[in-house]
Amino acid sequence: MISRVSYPNPVLGNPGDYEKEALFTFKSFTWFIENDGVSLEVPLPSINDQKLNGYFQNNEASLYLKIISPSSYFSKIIELRYDEFIEGIFKITFPIGELNKKIFFSFYLATNQTLTLEPELLSTNFPSSFPALKSDIIAKSPQWSELIDHEWDPKKSNSVSFMAVTFHIDEKEKETSVDFGRDRIMIQLPKSSYDEYIHFGESKADIIHSGIVFPVLIQAVNYVINSENNSSDEFSEKTWFQRLNQLIFDQSQELENLTPLEIAQKILKDPMKRGISYLTISDKDAESEEDY
């Protein structure tokens, strides 16, 4: 929900100031995480109030990017003038480390000179024109977030590298439990089971994915999807949550509309089938061993 802020003038994006159909948004943003820094490509904004859009295109108003990276104690406001967009794109590069982990960004449109504004989609609660001083905010976008994860590439890394199998510190604990309250999801096995687990090699990955990781991933996906409709997303600051969120919503549109079970299936590349195949091969191996 966007909260209302008191500005000297009506602001597109401030609830109640403009008609509901008035828009100030962007088609998409493109991020490049490279070795020497992070680049952001900003497309031209979509402003459907033609008068406001005209002020921007005539350089009577500028776009401002406000970007915040809490994990690196970094924030900055950058001016993006219409005539500095090249083929509809404004590219900004941030030196390595300025943006790190979950970052937040939003845009403002503000006047470069004193103007009398006559927006087309202004709410009828206001007079049809009003004066604005230099540097007055006249539109603001929602705030978006992005995960700038220098340690993890969802296209290359192991898709479940945000999970870890470990053991209960209390040796009396005899049941497996899952702790979602840390940066990695911790699947905590009883100590005796864990001691057996650590001897499994890569060859057991299929059955481990099927029997251990898969059910936990379904639950984790559930948390991520439900947080979209729930303000009490208690795990949203956790690394596992942000990485999974990126996998589901940012990286692959094919996952967005699936159920948690289907998403987990896709991420783990059908673990149930792989589990069955593993067991079938194990059975065959056992039979062939008996033959000898």
Partner: peptide, 10 residues
């Protein structure tokens, strides 16, 4: 700083 983000930027 909250209300005058642009003013302060200048």
């Amino acid at each position: 700083l909250v209300a005058d983000v642009v003013l302060v930027a200048h």
